[in-house]
């Protein structure tokens, strides 16, 4: 694998040539956040709701553990 001059992001792109792994690790259950915001904890659900409601998505990556 060649590392291009465009840095780490390109490295990631090159690494995407690896075949998808059959290995998967159980996804942890979401730790629901109480408050005024009703959070969706699954990205595909978020896309579906976005399509249905016409609202844009606000996608937050945040480790809670």
């Amino acid at each position: 694998m060649r590392i291009t001059s465009k840095g780490f992001a390109s490295t990631i792109a090159v690494m995407s040539l690896f075949p998808s792994s059959a290995w998967a690790i159980e996804k942890p259950k979401p730790q629901e956040i109480s408050g005024k915001i009703k959070w969706i904890y699954d990205y595909e659900d978020g896309k579906r709701i976005s399509r249905e409601t016409g609202r844009p998505m606000f996608v937050v990556f945040r480790c809670e553990r």
């Binding site: 992001a9 996804k27 956040i33 978020g46 976005s50 998505m57 937050v60 990556f61 553990r65």
Partner: peptide, 23 residues
């Protein structure tokens, strides 16, 4: 303001498509 959005909270990278979410 948040009510105008579908608020998605991703708490782990398990199964996330890193071809799309590069950060």
């Amino acid at each position: 303001m948040a009510e105008n959005f579908v608020c998605v909270r991703i708490q782990s990278m398990n199964g996330v498509n890193i071809n799309q979410f590069q950060f």
